[in-house]
């Protein structure tokens, strides 16, 4: 049952990620990415990472994708004509990426999986590390990274303001 749910979620994620790439209208791509992120949140839930699933929904779907939608709606990109999605050069690039993927997957399959079977298998819900363990690790072992992330967010906010500011005539 768990395996079936996992493959349904994973298949939906892959299909909607393909829709992000293939669809021509950027608005449809954003909605397809929304499906991908929600389905990935479901995968996190199945792997017992409840905190990550919560923040995936709040942060990605609630903040980042809404920002994308705002920008698309304010820019009004309907008039701009895009080149066709499947150009020869792009197809060659995707073909190269697919060759690398098939080579890597074949190597991976020929090894028969190099992770020891003795460790806990993912997918048993309910017994992953909880929010207490994650918070303890974040605020003791990774406190410097946490503070640096706050500095990064401040710098990104200031940079976004500076970039979109109208150019004034210099004295």
């Amino acid at each position: 049952m768990d395996t079936l749910v996992f493959w349904i979620l994973a298949g939906t994620a892959v299909l909607s990620a393909l829709a992000v790439v293939v669809l021509k209208n950027p608005m449809n791509s954003v909605v397809a990415l929304l499906v991908t992120l929600l389905v990935t949140a479901g995968l996190y839930l199945q792997m017992g990472a409840f905190v990550i699933a919560l923040f995936q929904v709040i942060l990605y779907v609630g903040a980042v994708l809404v920002l994308f939608l705002f920008v698309i709606m304010t820019l009004d990109l309907k008039s701009s004509r895009e080149r066709p999605v499947l150009s020869p050069r792009g197809l060659a690039a995707a073909f190269t990426a697919g060759i690398f993927f098939i080579a890597g997957a074949g190597w991976f399959a020929s090894r028969g999986g190099f992770f020891p079977k003795t460790a806990v298998s993912p997918g048993v819900p309910g017994n992953g590390p909880g929010i207490r363990e994650i918070a303890l690790d974040l605020f003791t072992g990774h406190l410097l990274v946490f503070e640096l992330a706050s500095v990064l967010l401040l710098a990104a906010a200031v940079a976004a303001l500076v970039i979109v500011r109208k150019e004034r005539s210099r004295p």
């Binding site: 920008v71 990064l152 967010l153 990104a156 976004a160 979109v164």
Partner: peptide
């Protein structure tokens, strides 16, 4: 996720 949010903000500013 933090880096992704910052990247989306700066990237969308560049697109604008």
């Amino acid at each position: 996720m933090t880096v992704s949010a910052a990247e989306a903000a700066v990237g969308l500013a560049i697109v604008v």
